[in-house]
Amino acid sequence: MFLKKLCVYFIVLSFLLSSNLALAADTVLPGVKASIRPATKKEFKNKTAKKRYRPYELTITNNNKKPVLLHAETELRFVLQDDTKETSADRREIYKKSRKRDVGRYWGLGIPGCIIGGGITGITLFIGAPIGAAVAVGMYVPTARAVKSNVDVSQQLYATMDMPIRLEPDKTYKIRVLAPKHTDFKALEITNVGFDAKKMYTIKAPLIEEDWEKAKENL
């Protein structure tokens, strides 16, 4: 009987503790002002990324006297209109999908293919070299275009899409955030941040409604 009671107490206690931790993680970090607004057409021109994502600019100011530290568990979550939450893809995934398909990645197959194709046809029909040249030129043009476009994308992402690992006091950060195109959200949450790695908080950035018309332009 005693053992049964002990078990019940243990289960209830563990449930309470776990729910408290969850609450602690959802506690909004005081002294940090954040907002998110849609990026304008001038600020973000990358058409390839716009096929999948809608660009936003996140502004965070740390008004505390201590720096706010991000954590390996820090995630970006979009709070949707029905209060459900959608976790953002990681930077690596977004970065990969933001780039134009790079034909250059097929050079490893293309060059041996040209050599084999050119060699065989050259030996049998004496026309290997022209065919090989045609294949090479045909691959070069889309490759060059893709690479040129990717240079622009990489420069843009390098310059703007960089989440800091710590938010220094009295400093404002502007970060580019790419949300999935059909995600209709009302706020962005940055989870698991704090002054040390012991207690975790959340930063909430509401979507600025007045810029909604600009957002539609970017669709």
Partner: peptide, 28 residues
């Protein structure tokens, strides 16, 4: 690809592992 690489580092005599990504600015 031309501009990004995957990275993993290990701490000597420890279980600590870190991984992530490295990306270049403006490759030509």
């Amino acid at each position: 690809d031309f501009i990004h690489a995957d990275v993993t580092i290990y701490k000597k005599d420890s279980d600590k592992v870190c991984n992530g990504v490295v990306f270049l600015n403006a490759p030509t």
